[in-house]
Design a protein around this nucleic acid. Structure first.
Length: 316
DNA sequence: AATACGGGGAC
DNA sequence: GTCCCAGTATT
């Protein structure tokens, strides 16, 4: 759950999951919808799918017995080198080193290594070094100690070098490279996308929700019918889009722009410049959803934020 | 070897 | 705005 996620952010979700699914069998028997709804708001939703898949695998294929080795753990969906190492070392005392963001930082600084941590060479080099340094007699304590040291002491900003036990040997400190290390290859520019959501409001208090499928963001989550454009568009232009025409069943519908000023929802790699259009339509299609039930569906934070403004309090 | 994948918090 | 977060899967 905590992959690329701060503990404080993930902890409430962990508690919800433990309460909802006290055993691996409980999680295995849940529906994907239910799991996604509990995951809603945490991001990186493929983790939820992987967690669920793995629970089913452990419950039904391994008879509820969790893999007991690094190698066995690696076979699980959503479990990569870090997670397999963490579980194997902390739970089973298997001597495998963890390399998370903290370990990259601590090792790159102390040893003055400027190999980019997100390059193939860097990943290999740091794993090898961590494995050499690992206390094979107590890998659980060593692994947790080096991560905790990175999180609390050798922090990204303002590390506590003056009281650091390594300040006589740390190469980054010696060469004034603390701010430079670790080296990370720059990421791409964020892409701008223009979203126009069609929020149907039928006379019988229903709307339309669609599930996102396939690749891309928010796979499995629900949203309103979406018209994506290359730039900001007005109503006159919106109605000419094929995606719009395909979504409108009857004729003579009335469009009402909910937010003149677009919401800019920022993901790490895209900015979603979003407008919501309320579609007042008398005719309700067969796959419509009662407005008071939309909060049962897992939705992106962007949609959840809108619903909190749009829906009457009684619906939430 | 790159890139995609969320959301939030600190500065 | 920038960077980072108890990374992994896919291309």
């Amino acid at each position: 759950m905590l992959q690329q996620t701060r503990i404080e952010q993930g902890l409430p979700y962990y508690n919800k999951f433990i309460q909802a699914y006290p055993s691996v069998f409980d999680l295995a028997n849940a529906t994907p919808e239910e799991v996604l709804k509990l995951w809603q708001g945490l991001g990186y939703y493929s983790r939820a799918r992987n967690l669920h898949e793995t629970a089913k695998y452990v419950a039904f294929e391994l008879n509820g017995k969790f893999p007991g080795t690094y190698k066995g753990l690696l076979k699980l969906k959503g479990v990569g080198d870090y997670t397999a190492s963490a579980i194997a070392s902390i739970c089973y005392n298997e001597p495998v080193a963890v390399v998370d963001g903290n370990v990259y930082r601590v090792l790159s600084r102390i040893f003055g290594i400027d190999t980019p941590i997100n390059s193939a060479a860097g990943i290999k080099e740091f794993k090898l070094l961590a494995q050499e340094l690992l206390d094979k007699n107590d890998p659980a304590t060593f692994n947790q100690a080096i991560m905790e040291f990175g999180a609390l002491h050798c922090k990204p900003q303002k590390p506590k070098c003056e009281i650091c036990p390594f300040n006589d040997s740390c190469l980054a400190l010696k060469n004034d490279k603390i701010k430079e290390l670790p080296v990370k290859l720059k990421k791409n520019k964020v892409k701008k996308r223009y979203f126009n959501y069609l929020v149907f409001n039928h006379e019988n208090e229903t709307t339309i929700l669609e599930q996102r499928v396939g690749k891309g963001i928010w796979n499995g989550l629900y949203q309103f019918p979406l018209v994506e454009s290359e730039r900001l568009i007005d109503e006159k232009e919106l109605v000419t889009f094929e995606a719009f025409k395909n979504s409108i069943t009857g004729s003579g519908v009335e469009l009402e722009l909910f937010n003149e000023i677009p919401v800019i929802h920022k993901l790490s790699h895209q900015h979603l410049i979003t407008r919501f259009w309320v579609v007042n339509s008398g005719t309700a299609s067969e796959n419509s959803v009662k407005l008071k039930n939309v909060t049962d569906y897992p939705v992106p934070v962007l949609i959840e934020n809108f619903l909190n403004e749009y829906l009457p309090d009684g619906y939430k």
